[in-house]
Each structure stands twice: as C-alpha cells, then as structure tokens.
Design a protein around this nucleic acid. Structure first.
Lengths: 144, 144
DNA sequence: GTTGATGCAAAATTTTTGCAAGATG
DNA sequence: CATCTTGCAAAAATTTTGCATCAAC
C-alpha cells in the first residue's frame, strides 16, 4: 500500500521515482524540522544515489503540492515538515536559549486570526506564527 | 536635536558615523519594508559613499540594538522596518496576489499569544506573525 | 591617538539551473 | 518511447568577512 504522500503525488500526476519515495519517507518519519542538507543526509542513509539538487527540487515540488510546509526559524536556511491534513494548524515556539522547537495549537487563536483577516477584507491562504521564547524564570543573557 | 535612532545609538555607545545616520534616516522615512539593496539604493541617493557591506553591517547592528526589525516575507531576502517603542506590536498581512503588505494590530491577539506561551512555560522575547491572504472574493488562481 | 567603522573585493552560504543521461508511465 | 526526472557542476542570489584605510570619540 502506498504511503499518504505517495498517494498525494499520484493524485497530482507526479512520477513516483525512487528519490521522491525516499524523501517522502524521510519526511514522514521526521519528528523534527530538518533543513535541505539534513533531508539529504537522511535520504542518503537510505539510498545514497540522491543528490542535494534533487532534494531541493523535491521540496519545492512537495511544497507546491501542499505535501510539506516550508519554515524559516531564523537560522538562515529553510526547514521542512509534512503538512497536516484538513484545516488543522499548529504553530511553533522556538526556545531561543537552545533552539528547541515546541509545537502548539489553539482553536481560539485560529478563530481570532480569521476574524482579523476578514475584518480587513482578506481570506487567509497561508500563514506563519512563531514565538521566540525563553523558559519562564530564565532571565535573559542569551549568547550569540 | 538628534533623532530617536541616533539617541538609541548613543545610549548603546555606538559611534555615530555619517553612514549610520543616513541609514537611520532612510529607515525612519520608510513607510514600507525595504530590503538591504533597497536601503542601500535610498542611502546612496542621500550620500553615495555608502557600501552595501555597511548596510548589511548596520542592519545587523541595529537589529541587535532593537532599533529595527528584520522580516522575511518569503521573497528570499530579509526586509527591514524600524522597531516600535514599548510593547506595541503590529503584524503583517501579505496579499499574495500582488505582494502588498498591510499592517494590523490586535490587543486580544497579544493577550492570547502571551497566554499560550505562558501555559507552556515560556515568556515571549520575539515573534513573527504573518498572514498570507487573498482579498475576499478573489478566488485563487495565483500565478507564480 | 585608540578604537571602532568603512570600502572593496573576495568568500561563504543557501538555493537554482543547464544539460546530457537515465528512469517512469 | 515520449516525457519527466536526475546528477553534476556551474551559476545565482543574498549575506558575511579580511584587511588596509579612515573617522569618531
């Protein structure tokens, strides 16, 4: 049985190459938010005939197909995770002390965002919300 | 009388060079969110002895000093605007049809964000919230 | 006068692309 | 077997940096 991502690819008429299958598998397995090079590294460990260029091409493709989401956590490179189905949404808290990423979701927040956009005459088609935080009690003094 | 930005620089013990003064002036005057190259272009029109490298060095410096905010609206380069005083906050709606950026603020949203972070044991020290939108009634079909 | 800032050009980083060769449907 | 995809290496785009010179305090 084909994976969810594989199914999505077929639905869009994309060819299922070995490389795409591997990258999809790596993305599905990832519990974190790897960047392109990390995706490449993990993919290579499954099948070493995958180039970094293909990883870049594939994430762009998967992004267009809404198979994954591209993030930018201010560390200079794009990072990726599988997109969730339907209208679920989560956002990220980035612990600036150590780079740890915590996910959260909040229905009240979803409603409020939509209301704010609607009041200005807009419909949300994409979004980004990141909170850069320190653990409570940790009183600043973060080094570069 | 020195500008607000100039005062902030002095407070941090930074030297007030002609270049920094010009870049500060350009930032203050900007009603939009220029990128480094645009800042350089505008600065050059005031004083053409300013290099792009200095613009990059200066925005990093100003960012550390919380004189400006660095944004990333998914067009590949960083964009800048002066930071507001105190705890005011605004966020951005990006019209994906034409790239137009609309600013908004909402007190309820501020409260909610803080509550969400606090519930997870975090204190917000920085954030980012962007809503990528289409005007209501404009039914998709956005070209690359 | 010291210390920090600048300009220039070269380098670094991340991402994209041309093209010939290979795999997919 | 036509078309799409890949690998490679080169290019592009943005940002950073080394170093000699210059300016601010």
């Amino acid at each position: 049985m084909p994976s969810r991502i594989e199914q999505l690819c077929r639905d869009k008429g994309l060819k299922m190459t070995g490389q795409r299958r591997v990258i999809a598998q790596v993305l599905s397995a990832a519990q974190d938010h790897p960047d392109a090079e990390e995706l490449h590294r993990r993919s290579m460990s499954i099948d070493n005939r995958i180039s970094l260029a293909t990883v870049y091409r594939t994430v762009r493709l998967f992004e267009d197909a809404q198979i994954l989401e591209r993030h930018d956590f201010r560390d200079g490179r794009a990072r990726f995770e599988t997109a969730e189905d339907g209208d679920e949404h989560h956002h990220h808290i980035i612990n600036v002390r150590n780079g740890e990423v915590v996910e959260f979701e909040d229905e009240e927040l979803e409603t409020l965002k939509r209301r704010i956009a609607a009041d200005l005459g807009f419909k949300i088609v994409g979004e980004r919300l990141e909170l850069y935080c320190l653990p409570i009690g940790d009183d600043e003094g973060v080094e570069k």
